[in-house]
Simulated assay, not measured.
Amino acid sequence: MKSLYDFSFLKEYGEVFKVYDDQDSGNVCFGVKNGDRKLFIKFAGAPTARYNGKPEGAVARLKAAVPIYPDLAHPNLIRLIHAEEVGGGFAAIFEWTDSECWGRMYPQSREKFMQLPDPAKLEVFSDI
């Protein structure tokens, strides 16, 4: 984070068990557990360290992306549950899935994927 930010609003969703904060998008993502239910929360509005823009820009982009998620719905992709203004920013709340992020900000898991044989990588894209 570029500066302190109050994430106490996350308690509304449950207990944070995973943080994805190495983002250049202006978002911070969380795995949250409440009883047996797990959620993936993508939050924009906090001043993240790797984002060069203003938090308001990240909020605007996340808000603009939310209406597109239904068009992208697929059994192999996490499902958007809802989105809302919360904690001085905006959150998109998804079902949780146990998986790894293959984005460029996570080189170890990305490299693991890139080392798969080409047919296996193509199968992943074909499934989606």
Rank of each mutant, 00 (worst) to 15 (best):
residue 114 M to E: 11
residue 51 Y to F: 15
residue 92 A to V: 00
residue 99 S to A: 10
residue 100 E to W: 12
residue 27 N to D: 14
residue 6 D to N: 13
residue 76 N to S: 15
residue 82 H to W: 11
residue 119 P to L: 00
residue 75 P to R: 11
residue 61 R to Q: 15
residue 93 I to W: 02
residue 62 L to I: 08
residue 70 P to G: 09
residue 87 G to H: 06
residue 110 R to N: 05
residue 77 L to T: 08
residue 15 E to Q: 13
residue 45 G to S: 05
residue 86 V to G: 09
residue 57 G to N: 15
residue 59 V to W: 10
residue 33 K to L: 02
residue 85 E to H: 08
residue 49 A to I: 08
residue 110 R to I: 00
residue 82 H to S: 13
residue 107 P to M: 01
residue 27 N to Y: 08
residue 117 P to V: 00
residue 67 P to M: 10
residue 37 R to W: 00
residue 37 R to D: 04
residue 88 G to E: 10
residue 39 L to Q: 01
residue 99 S to W: 02
residue 9 F to I: 04
residue 18 K to S: 13
residue 34 N to Q: 12
residue 88 G to T: 07
residue 76 N to Y: 14
residue 123 E to N: 09
residue 81 I to G: 12
residue 103 G to N: 05
residue 104 R to S: 08
residue 69 Y to C: 09
residue 121 K to Q: 07
residue 34 N to A: 10
residue 47 P to Y: 05
residue 39 L to G: 01
residue 25 S to R: 03
residue 125 F to V: 11
residue 99 S to G: 09
residue 3 S to W: 04
residue 91 A to R: 05
residue 16 V to L: 09
residue 55 P to I: 02
residue 10 L to E: 07
residue 115 Q to L: 08
residue 88 G to I: 07
residue 79 R to E: 15
residue 62 L to F: 08
residue 4 L to H: 13
residue 55 P to Y: 05
residue 76 N to I: 08
residue 16 V to Q: 11
residue 89 G to M: 04
residue 44 A to M: 07
residue 105 M to L: 06
residue 77 L to G: 10
residue 87 G to K: 04
residue 43 F to M: 03
residue 6 D to A: 06
residue 126 S to V: 06
residue 92 A to Q: 02
residue 112 K to I: 02
residue 14 G to C: 09
residue 64 A to Y: 12
residue 109 S to P: 01
residue 59 V to P: 12
residue 77 L to D: 06
residue 44 A to K: 06
residue 107 P to E: 00
residue 119 P to N: 01
residue 98 D to V: 00
residue 56 E to W: 07
residue 109 S to F: 00
residue 8 S to C: 03
residue 59 V to D: 11
residue 104 R to K: 08
residue 48 T to Y: 05
residue 93 I to Q: 03
residue 13 Y to A: 06
residue 112 K to H: 07
residue 94 F to D: 04
residue 31 G to Y: 00
residue 53 G to F: 08
residue 103 G to C: 10
residue 96 W to H: 07
residue 121 K to V: 00
residue 56 E to L: 09
residue 45 G to R: 02
residue 60 A to V: 11
residue 66 V to K: 09
residue 89 G to L: 05
residue 102 W to L: 13
residue 122 L to P: 01
residue 40 F to T: 00
residue 94 F to K: 03
residue 122 L to N: 07
residue 122 L to R: 10
residue 65 A to M: 14
residue 6 D to T: 05
residue 105 M to C: 07
residue 59 V to H: 11
residue 54 K to E: 15
residue 114 M to P: 00
residue 22 D to F: 08
residue 22 D to S: 11
